[in-house]
Amino acid sequence: GNAVQEIMIPASKAGLVIGKGGETIKQLQERAGVKMVMIQDGPQNTGADKPLRITGDPYKVQQAKEMVLELIRD
């Protein structure tokens, strides 16, 4: 079955996860074999953390989460 996890991405790092024209998030999805969606909560909310929703095989979702956390670590 499918697992769904959401991680909060600091607004300052959201661009890093998505990448230029969505390149990075696309590569992450391909590498991890999961679906990732950045939940954009309207323009008034630009400074707030953005939830990144990861959907897929539970094991792969976990892997994907680690990859993203690695990416946004300072």
Rank of each mutant, 00 (worst) to 15 (best):
A32I: 10
T46N: 08
A14S: 10
Q40W: 07
I25D: 03
M38L: 15
L16S: 06
P43L: 09
M8A: 05
V61W: 00
P10F: 00
D49I: 05
L16V: 14
G21W: 04
L69H: 08
L71W: 04
G15C: 15
D74S: 06
M36S: 02
A48F: 12
G47L: 08
V68I: 11
R73Q: 15
A32P: 01
D41I: 06
Q29M: 10
A32G: 08
R73V: 10
V37G: 04
T24C: 09
P43R: 12
G56N: 01
Q62M: 08
I39H: 07
K26G: 06
N45W: 06
V34S: 01
R73G: 15
K60N: 14
L52D: 01
Q29A: 12
V4E: 15
I39Q: 11
M67N: 08
I9N: 01
G56E: 00
M38W: 11
G56I: 00
E70C: 06
M38I: 10
I25H: 03
D41T: 09
E6Y: 03
V61Q: 02
E70I: 02
G21N: 15
M8E: 04
V37W: 09
G33W: 01
G22D: 07
G33S: 05
G19E: 03
D41C: 11
I9Y: 00
Q62T: 12
K50E: 04
G15E: 15
D41E: 14
E30C: 13
I18D: 05
Q40S: 10
T55S: 09
I18M: 08
G21F: 09
K50A: 11
R53A: 05
V68T: 05
T55D: 06
G19V: 01
V34L: 02
G22E: 09
N2Y: 05
D57E: 14
I72S: 03
A14H: 15
D41V: 11
Q29G: 05
G42W: 03
L69V: 07
Q40K: 11
K26Y: 10
V17L: 13
I7P: 00
S12G: 13
E6M: 08
V37H: 04
K35C: 06
G47K: 15
A11N: 14
M36W: 00
K50H: 10
N45I: 11
A64Y: 00
D49P: 12
Q63N: 06
E6I: 06
P10C: 01
V68S: 02
G42M: 07
G56T: 00
Q40V: 09
E30Y: 06
I72G: 03
Q27C: 08
L16I: 10
G22M: 06
I39M: 14
Q27W: 09
A48R: 12
G22N: 07
P51D: 03
V61T: 05
P51N: 10
E23Y: 08
L69Q: 13
T55F: 09
L71R: 07
K60H: 12
P58T: 13
Q62H: 08
R31A: 10
G33I: 00
R31P: 02
Q62K: 12
P10K: 03
Q5N: 07
T55Y: 05
E30N: 07
G22Y: 03
A64R: 00
D49G: 07
R53W: 04
K13S: 08
Q62L: 08
K13F: 04
E66G: 10
G42H: 07
V34H: 00
V37A: 09
D49K: 07
K26I: 14
A11P: 14
L16P: 02
G19P: 01
M36F: 04
K35S: 06
I72V: 14
Y59T: 15
M38V: 13
K65R: 12
V34A: 05
L69P: 03
V17D: 02
T55L: 10
Q27N: 12
G33M: 05
Q29N: 03
T55E: 07
S12D: 13
I39G: 11
M38E: 04
R73N: 13
L28Y: 03
V4S: 04
E6S: 04
K35G: 08
A32C: 13
P51K: 11
E6N: 05
A32W: 09
T55R: 05
P10T: 02
I9D: 01
V4K: 14
I9H: 00
G1Y: 08
G56M: 00
K20M: 06
E66D: 13
A11T: 08
P10S: 02
T46W: 05
N2I: 15
D74E: 09
L16Q: 07
I18N: 08
T46P: 12
G15Y: 10
K50S: 08
I54E: 00
N45K: 13
N45L: 05
A3P: 15
L69K: 11
P58Y: 11
G19C: 02
Q27I: 12
V68M: 05
K35Y: 03
T24W: 04
K20S: 10
K20F: 08
K26N: 07
V61G: 01
I39C: 09
G1T: 14
G42P: 09
L16K: 13
Y59P: 14
R73H: 14
A11C: 10
E30Q: 10
G21M: 11
K26Q: 11
D41W: 04
K35E: 13
V4A: 03
L28V: 05
E70D: 15
G15R: 10
Q5A: 13
K26P: 02
V34E: 01
E66Q: 08
D49V: 08
